[in-house]
C-alpha cells in the first residue's frame, strides 16, 4: 500500500511525458524540405552516413568495476541500517569487508584499470 502513490505518480508522469513527445507534432507547423532532416554535422556532407557504428570508449573497465562496487554497496546498505545493533562484531566484520574492498580498488589502480583507456595499438 505504501507504493500506491508512487505507482499513480508514475503513470501520471508517463502520461505527461507522452504528451510532451507528441506536443510538437500536434501544435507545430509542418513544412518539410529536402535537407531539413539532414543530421547535424556542421553543414557539410557527411563522411560516414551512419553514426551508429562501433565507438571505442575509455571507460569500459570502469564500467565493469562499477558493477562490482555497486553489488558490494548493495551488501553494505543492510549493514549500515542495522549497524547500531551489531556492536563490535558488526564493526570488525564490516571493517574486514571494506578492507578487502579497498584492497580490490588498489589492485585495480595498480593494474591501471582506473586510467582512461586509450587504445595503444590502433590500426595503422
Amino acid at each position: 500500500m505504501d507504493y500506491l502513490g508512487f505507482v499513480i505518480f508514475g503513470f501520471v508522469m508517463l502520461g505527461i511525458a507522452l504528451l510532451m513527445v507528441f506536443l510538437n507534432y500536434l501544435l507545430g507547423p509542418k513544412a518539410p524540405s529536402a535537407l531539413k532532416d539532414y543530421p547535424y554535422e556542421c553543414g557539410v556532407p557527411l563522411y560516414d552516413k551512419s553514426a551508429q557504428a562501433t565507438f571505442h570508449q575509455g571507460y569500459y573497465l570502469l564500467g565493469l568495476l562499477l558493477l562490482l562496487f555497486d553489488i558490494e554497496a548493495a551488501f553494505l546498505f543492510p549493514w549500515t541500517v542495522v549497524y547500531r545493533y551489531l556492536g563490535v562484531f558488526g564493526f570488525v566484520e564490516m571493517f574486514l569487508f571494506i578492507f578487502i574492498l579497498i584492497y580490490g580498488l588498489l589492485y585495480a589502480w595498480r593494474k591501471g584499470a582506473l586510467d582512461w583507456q586509450f587504445e595503444e595499438e590502433y590500426i595503422d
Binding site: M13, L14, I16, A17, L18, M20, V21, L23, N24, Y25, L27, G28, P29, K30, A31, K36, D37, Y38, P39, Y40, K49, S50
Partner: peptide, 24 residues
C-alpha cells in the same frame, strides 16, 4: 511547443522518443 517536429533521417524514431520519456 509551437516548433516544427523534426526527426533526423536514418535515426530510430521509437528510441528517439523513448529517450525523452526515460529522461523525464
Amino acid at each position: 511547443i509551437t516548433k516544427e517536429d523534426i526527426f533526423p533521417r536514418a535515426g530510430n524514431r521509437f528510441l528517439y522518443n523513448l529517450a525523452l520519456v526515460l529522461a523525464l
